[in-house]
Design a protein around this nucleic acid. Structure first.
Length: 571
RNA sequence: GCCCUCGUAGCUCAAUGGAUCGAGCAGCGCUCUUCUAAGGCGUUGAUGUAGGUUCGAUUCCUACCGAGGGCACCA
């Protein structure tokens, strides 16, 4: 990358005065300041006992003799920044390179040969697949794709909680309300069955708080040791329904998991690890339970229960089993786990415990947490039954999209595809546009936008580019970079930064950097589209503009695919 | 009480310690004989408070104010 060449040229020119001082070469915020800028003079000034501007001027004189190819002009500006301007040729060559890379422009090999497992979505059988899962899935899928864009071999994993107190609550609900609103269960469709389970859970959750704690704890024990055939029957039915239903959701969202792990499979391993390390003093008994005293290792941590006084492993114990199961299934270099941030403390304590057990494996685990999708009224809680399912949200947005295209002269198949791709795109975008970790305040009326800073805006710009390209093809004008106009378009100056953005988003596990860039890029294209006639046989620059449009379209495809968003052929 | 996040425009969000803090929405004013107006152009408007470190602080440190999450047998 040219940025690295600039960096290298500066290092050579500054020479020993640089010492171990690090400086940056970044794209500028304003084209007035060129295409790249460095702060090297400001950072080194003190060291060499010169004013930054003075040092910058000397450095520029030195750099003039050793300018990387592709840099046309450099100048000192502001407090001592040095600005670099890309040459006309560099930009047109870049456009040509984007096209010949066939969709691979922007990807890199930084993680070639590395194996990565990403665990996300993690819905719990017997509970609703709600908008929180939608959030986890969207972020996780995008993180997985970012890893792929860096050349890593990625496996997607989903960890589903098919045992535990929440299941006991659901079963309690199933026992007390065996049919759904007067309809026998076997007459319900898959979605209906899934909703029934969600309601049964909500019922049991309320009952747990309202005097039935003992009953439900007893049920939990029965589920765990499978000692009651009636309970087993309800359990097996509910688990199967949930898993089948979840598959329809993954498909809709565009995720294909390589591995499924279940809490029920982790219980045994979890218990045996805890018992083994109980002897070694990592875990301790306390009030009949087996616990890990996190505060002994780090004052900011606290104590968590691993095996309850009833002998049942908690989530924490099963998590230990999961780490080992993952390693056995697919030994990886990086193991990413994505959860909601309300589990941050559980994870930090859990990771400390794991570090005491197996420091080498614990080292590879990277925990990323996302915020909550909230209602304006407050927390979205499945415990009170007050949930918005992913299905409900998707279909609501879908309806809005249908309304928008109802007068278009498209056939029904195309309309259906547009409805699906645009609604999913809009929702995913609204999740990925901000840094992961923060909450998203969710307002049905306002949250999903189709204008401006939105998924559809990106999709729309892409389809407009496509229609210009189709027109070019029909008129027999093809993309060409031989005849290049002397003036430079902002579009090409923006396009060349795509690789750097992908690299940064990948390194920082931050898809939103890519989102921000794509919005800027699409805006630049829309401006270009409004001001330039792209396909025009009488214009000698037309072939170049078509090439530029093609390059834009390809970058949008690559960028959006990393976000897990697809582009419809028309909108 | 302790721990972790987070306070940027009326609203929702950006900004590896760097140049004049960027977008979108909402508001106001323009813009469809053209490759799609889900578009384009212009315009109004912001770093919670008080200190500190630094050539330079939205960013780092301290205190305070405010919001959210977590703190023993739930996940």
């Amino acid at each position: 990358m040219i940025r690295d060449l600039i960096h290298k040229a500066i290092s050579q020119s500054v020479g020993e005065a640089l010492g171990d001082i690090s400086f940056s070469v970044e794209r500028t915020e304003d084209f007035e300041h060129g295409d790249y800028a460095t702060n090297v003079a400001l950072v080194v000034a003190k060291q060499v006992k010169k004013a930054p501007v003075v040092f910058a001027k000397e450095l520029v004189a030195e750099l003039q003799r050793n300018l990387p190819e592709g840099i046309e002009k450099i100048e000192v500006a502001g407090a001592g920044f040095i600005n670099f301007f890309l040459s006309r040729k560099y930009l047109s060559d870049a456009v040509s390179e984007i096209i010949s890379a066939k969709g691979n422009f922007g990807k890199n090999k930084n993680l070639a040969g590395k194996k990565v497992m990403v665990e996300y979505t993690d819905p719990n059988p017997f509970k609703e697949f709600h908008i929180g899962h939608l959030m986890s899935n969207t972020i996780g899928e995008s993180i997985a794709r970012l890893f792929e864009a860096q050349g890593a071999e990625v496996k997607r994993a989903c960890y589903q909680g098919d045992v535990g107190l929440h299941v006991a609550k659901a079963i309690w609900g199933m026992q007390s309300v065996p049919i759904r609103e007067g309809t026998p269960l076997e007459k319900l469709d898959l979605t209906g069955k899934a909703r029934y389970l969600g309601h049964a859970y909500a019922l049991g959750a309320a009952a747990y708080e309202d005097g039935h704690k003992e009953d439900i704890n007893g049920l939990n024990k029965k589920i765990y040791d499978r000692s009651d055939s009636e309970v087993n029957k309800l359990y097996d039915w509910g688990r199967k329904v949930s898993l089948e239903y979840f598959e329809t959701q993954y498909k809709k969202l565009g995720t294909k998991f390589d591995f499924y792990f279940f809490e029920s499979e982790m219980a045994e391993a979890g218990v045996s690890i805890v018992k083994k390390f109980l002897e070694k003093g990592i875990f301790e008994t306390s009030e009949g339970a087996i616990v890990f005293h996190g505060e002994k290792y780090n004052p900011k941590l606290h104590t968590r229960v691993y095996i309850t006084s009833q002998g049942i492993p908690t989530y924490e114990a099963k998590e230990l089993g999961l780490h080992l199961a993952k390693e056995k299934k697919y030994p990886s270099d990086i193991s990413v786990v994505i959860t909601a941030n309300e589990q941050d403390a559980v994870f930090t304590v859990g990771l400390e415990a794991f570090k005491q057990i197996d420091p080498k494996l614990a080292e590879k685990v990277k925990h990323l947490s996302h915020g909550m999708l909230r209602l304006p009224s407050g927390k979205m809680s499945s415990r009170s039954g007050d949930v918005i399912t992913a299905d409900a949200l998707v279909s609501q947005v879908h309806t809005l999209v249908e309304e928008k295209i109802k007068d278009r002269d498209y056939d029904s198949v195309l309309k259906k595809t547009i409805g699906e791709l645009v609604s999913i795109g809009a929702i995913k975008y609204s999740i990925l546009r901000q840094a992961i970790g923060g909450d998203i305040v969710f307002d049905f009326d306002k949250s999903i936008s189709f204008e401006g800073d939105s998924g559809p805006y990106l999709q729309y710009a892409s389809t407009r580019a496509q229609s210009a390209l189709s027109k070019a093809e029909n008129e027999g004008v093809s993309a060409d970079v031989q005849t290049v106009p002397t003036s430079v378009f902002a579009l090409e100056r923006t396009l060349v930064h795509f690789s750097e953005i992908v690299e940064r988003a990948g390194k920082e596990y931050a898809p939103h950097h890519l989102v921000t860039y794509l919005i800027e890029l699409a805006g630049t294209f829309n401006n270009f589209y409004a001001n330039e006639k792209i396909v025009d046989k009488s214009d000698s620059a037309s072939a170049y503009k078509i090439a530029l449009t093609k390059a834009f379209r390809m970058v949008m495809e690559t960028g959006l695919s990393i976000l897990g968003v697809q582009i419809p052929e028309k909108m």
